[in-house]
């Protein structure tokens, strides 16, 4: 660069061009993200008469709705924590476990597929596997004499749903955490070793603390992912399972008859809980990321 132009404002034509380029994105974000969500959430505080009210919020505190939130939180939490832990173990195994290199490429590709293989088809797959007539159910019964349904298992239960959700949660964790694991420099582990640390001590003091913010971030993402998931549960059970998204789905379908404010309040509760998961993540990661730029 030879001579800097004086720091005068850019010609107006160019400025408007920039805004013209960004405008579609901003209009889109307002119309299809911000306004609908805010409008809906505001609706939680508006009664049938159009006045401000807390009645809709209060109406959430029925046994059925609280139970639905509670089981949703438990399923999302369990599938997020298990998905993160198992996904981390698998990512570590394929990246740091010195397995044959083609295995890694295969696992990463499969993870891309499986993390997007949610919804109704996934429900079908698990019904065909662990449903009452599923292959694994029948093999366990006829070959091993173990009737899992008689011993309390049900695909439409907490553990059944968690097990199904793990099918997309684990691959999502693998996909997101793999770059972070790649970012662990070989020299860190060598430096720790030469200073006398065992592999376990390296992971305890160096490896896992470095990965921790990424793990937490992914954990909150996995939680939100499971919390909002409806298609998989709906495909498994129809509307019979009492989790929040299905409750909300039913509420929307029957909107004309029921109270629209209650639906909005349900939605508000969902957003608050996923937001909470993210705030917890932000707080913890801010504390553990002091060492980051």
């Amino acid at each position: 660069m030879m001579i800097q132009a004086p720091a005068s404002p850019a010609p107006p034509r160019r400025l408007s061009f920039e805004w013209l380029g960004v405008a579609p994105f901003i209009i889109f974000a307002l119309m299809f993200l911000a306004f609908p969500t805010l409008y809906l959430l505001a609706g939680a505080f508006i009664g049938r008469d159009g006045q401000f009210t807390f009645d809709n919020i209060a109406a959430l505190f029925t046994d059925q709705i609280i139970a639905a939130y509670w089981i949703s939180i438990r399923i999302s939490g369990a599938s997020a924590i298990l998905g993160a832990a198992i996904g981390l173990a698998m990512a570590l195994a394929i990246i740091r476990g010195r397995l044959p290199a083609p295995l890694r490429a295969a696992v990463m590709t499969f993870s891309g597929v499986a993390s997007n293989f949610a919804g109704v088809p996934l429900a079908f797959a698990f019904i065909a596997t662990l449903g009452r007539l599923g292959l694994v159910t029948i093999i366990l019964k006829t070959v091993f004499g173990l009737d899992i349904y008689r011993s309390g298992f049900n695909l439409l239960s907490f553990w059944g749903l968690t097990l199904t959700y793990l099918y997309f949660q684990i691959p999502l964790m693998v996909l997101i955490i793999a770059p972070a694991i790649d970012g662990l420099k070989k020299e860190w582990s060598e430096a720790a070793q030469i200073l006398g640390a065992t592999p376990w001590q390296f992971w305890r003091y160096i490896g896992l603390p470095i990965l921790w913010p990424s793990v937490l971030g992914t954990l909150s993402l996995l939680f939100a992912n499971a919390f909002g998931a409806i298609a998989t549960a709906y495909g498994l059970t129809g509307s019979s399972l009492n989790i929040v998204p299905i409750l909300l789905y039913a509420q929307i379908r029957g909107d004309a008859l029921q109270n629209p404010g209650l639906g909005a309040a349900l939605a508000l509760g969902m957003v608050l809980i996923t937001a909470c998961a993210n705030i917890i993540y932000l707080v913890i990661s801010a504390r553990s990321e002091r060492w980051m730029k």
Binding site: Y39, A229, I230, D255
Partner: peptide
């Protein structure tokens, strides 16, 4: 990724 799809679509329907 944070706002569930069901909430977005509910918002669309209402708005």
């Amino acid at each position: 990724l944070i706002i569930p799809a069901i909430i977005l679509v509910y918002g669309y329907i209402r708005l």
